[in-house]
Simulated assay, not measured.
Amino acid sequence: MLLDTPICDFGYQAPDFSLKTPEGETFTLSEQLGGKGLLIAFICNHCPYVQRIAERLAADTKTLMDEGINVLAIMSNDYRYLDADSPVNMQRFALKHGFEFPYLVDEDQFVGKLYGAVCTPDFFGFNTKGELHYRGRLDDARMGDAHNRVPELVNAMRLIAETGQGPKEQTPSMGCSIKWRD
């Protein structure tokens, strides 16, 4: 099912969490906020929207990380229902697309529900205080040609890093619905 993300709830306070990578390394929100903010991307492996943007996501997040903005990705789908999203396949997907950010398993789907994530990809841009200031799309290319794209996520995270505030005008991300456990 195709969904759009809700409008940004400016100032929403990011709840802390602790999640692990498929390899078992633990990451918490509080340790990742950093001096320039944090991007959290809810993604998965099987979604055609995520597959289409995966290489652009890897490049854009590398740019952000090189500039001191931290990045975490979270996979909240019920991978027992969709084996393509299993931890082993998360490792393969991350390697294939050159992800340099931690890709975390939301085993009990608690974090996805806590944040109100609705689709993959769903981007949450937080300032250093953990306040939400971006809930938009990666860029304006969507599923089309990305050669002359506007990197909206990179631009928004740079603005958040510089001012603590995100852009007032944001275009929702769109993607596949998160596959919640019954």
Results as ranks from 00 to 15, higher is better:
1 M>T: 12
2 L>K: 10
4 D>E: 14
5 T>P: 04
6 P>A: 12
11 G>Q: 06
17 F>D: 10
20 K>Y: 03
21 T>G: 11
25 E>F: 07
26 T>F: 11
29 L>R: 11
33 L>V: 07
34 G>K: 02
35 G>R: 00
36 K>S: 02
41 A>K: 03
43 I>P: 00
43 I>T: 06
44 C>A: 08
47 C>V: 06
47 C>D: 00
48 P>N: 05
49 Y>T: 06
52 R>C: 06
52 R>A: 09
54 A>K: 01
58 A>C: 10
58 A>D: 03
60 D>N: 10
61 T>C: 14
62 K>R: 14
64 L>M: 14
64 L>E: 03
67 E>V: 07
68 G>I: 14
68 G>M: 15
70 N>L: 08
83 D>P: 11
85 D>A: 07
88 V>R: 15
88 V>M: 12
89 N>T: 02
92 R>C: 01
103 Y>C: 11
105 V>Q: 05
107 E>V: 06
109 Q>C: 14
110 F>M: 09
111 V>Y: 03
114 L>F: 12
116 G>T: 09
118 V>Q: 11
119 C>N: 15
120 T>W: 08
123 F>I: 07
127 N>Y: 07
128 T>F: 08
129 K>I: 00
130 G>H: 09
131 E>W: 01
133 H>F: 14
142 R>V: 00
143 M>E: 09
145 D>V: 01
146 A>C: 06
146 A>W: 03
146 A>M: 04
146 A>F: 06
147 H>I: 01
149 R>H: 10
153 L>A: 09
153 L>T: 01
154 V>H: 02
157 M>R: 02
157 M>H: 04
158 R>A: 11
158 R>P: 04
159 L>A: 07
162 E>L: 13
163 T>C: 07
166 G>T: 02
167 P>L: 04
170 Q>C: 13
174 M>T: 13
175 G>K: 00
178 I>L: 15
181 R>A: 15
181 R>M: 15
181 R>N: 15
